[in-house]
Every structure is written in C-alpha cells, then in structure tokens.
C-alpha cells in the first residue's frame, strides 16, 4: 500500500477503515504527511489509523492545539503524534512547537495534516497520502 497506490472511498467510515489498514504497514520512526483541502478527510483518516494502533482517546482535530500526542496499545509503537499545520504561517513554527524531536524515533509514528506547509522540514523519505474530493462524498486517496 505504501507506494503508488490509489483507493476510493465513499464515506467517512470507509476512509477511517482505510486509515486503520494503513496503520498496519507503518513502522516506528515513520513520518506521514497528509495533503488535501478542508474537509477532504485527513482527520477522519487519522481517526482510523489511531484505531489501528489501539488509541483509546477520541482523536480530535489538532488544528488549534497544533499537536496531540496519543498513547497507543501497540507493541512497538508507543505513541502516535498527530500534528496539524493548518494555522502555521511559517514552516519554522513546526520546530517552535517542539515537533521535530518526535521524528524518526523508533517507538513513535508522526502524522502531519497540511504537510505542504512544512514539507522542507519533514524527513527526506516521509510517506505521503493525498486526499482529493471527487463528486459528493467520494474521495480519492493516493499513497505516494
């Protein structure tokens, strides 16, 4: 699933299920960048992904809080760090919020909404997921 694959979903529930499945291919240290417009389904996808890691807490949008750290129920991956760059006006703010110290840590997966805003600060080989709004509730989700 990790390279050049495209999926189509027709509801939030399906996007969540896709996120949950994606959790299965991730390894500790991975950084995932999510791309796509408002309402494209990025947070919805993270909800499913978190479920895949056994996160108990409700996964809410970090647009205001900027970074939410979730404890998981996973053997190797202990934390899911959920970052949202929606409000950032300058990529350097990613460093100021203390996000960089979570990158590449063996027991942590980092997932970043609005990754386009901070691309140059993400690790070289970060995973990318693109969300495209098609007709109505249909979404194209591309893994690249």
């Amino acid at each position: 699933m990790s390279t050049r694959q495209t999926a189509y979903t027709t509801s939030g529930t399906e996007t969540k299920a896709l996120g949950k499945k994606f959790a299965g291919v991730l390894c500790g240290g991975d950084v995932v960048g999510l791309f796509g417009d408002l309402g494209a389904g990025k947070t919805t996808f993270v909800k499913g992904l978190a479920q895949g890691f056994g996160v108990r807490r409700v996964v809410k949008s970090p647009s205001f809080t900027l970074m939410n750290i979730h404890q998981t129920k996973h053997r190797g991956i202990k934390q899911l760090v959920h970052i949202d760059c929606y409000r950032l006006t300058n990529p350097n703010q990613l460093e100021e919020i203390g996000a960089l110290e979570y990158f590449g840590r063996k027991d942590i997966v980092v997932i970043v909404e609005w990754a386009e805003k901070v691309k140059r600060l993400l690790p070289k080989k970060f995973l990318k997921v693109y969300f495209n709004i098609k007709k109505g509730d249909e979404r194209e989700v591309r893994f690249g």
Binding site: T43, K47, V58, K60, S61, S63, F64
Partner: peptide, 10 residues
C-alpha cells in the same frame, strides 16, 4: 460531552 472532531471555534 465533547466534540469528537473539530471544535466549534475551529
């Protein structure tokens, strides 16, 4: 109770 996704202000 709480929001399960976006906050109202957001």
């Amino acid at each position: 109770g709480q929001t399960i996704d976006d906050a109202a202000g957001e």
